[in-house]
Amino acid sequence: MPTEEMGSRILPQPPEVDARVVLTVVGGFLLIVAAAVVGLLVFLKADVPGALAPKRERPFPAPTLQTTPQGDLAKFEAAQHEALSDYGWIDRDRGLAHVPIDDAMRMIAARGEHAYDPLPGSSDPPADAGGGKR
């Protein structure tokens, strides 16, 4: 019957291990790590400009989510309808104006059989004349 008590079991490491060897290994490891860190810092300082400088915060783009889509649509539609509901000059020098869409519809209806015919001129800036992506 064994009389061994807790705490007096055989340890995995025999007591005769030379502590100097352990200290040498640990010390060598720490030296290698320190040398690697120092070497990295020297490399970064010499060859990577700005690597050790503190990073400046970059502004994060605002999310393009709509918090009130119904409100956005109502505002958008109001602005678009406004452009089709009043009189105004486009180019006073050239005598070009914009008119409410109801007036324009009457003008087109009054063209009779030529209602579908192309209209002369352009009210857009030249950059838009080529058309966009479709």
Binding site: G95, H98, I101, M105, M107, I108, L119
Partner: peptide
């Protein structure tokens, strides 16, 4: 198509 012509007309009228 006809209404598109009206849209074009509304944004480009020669006052003369």
């Amino acid at each position: 198509a006809a209404y598109i012509r009206a849209l074009q007309q509304s944004q480009h009228v020669d006052v003369a």
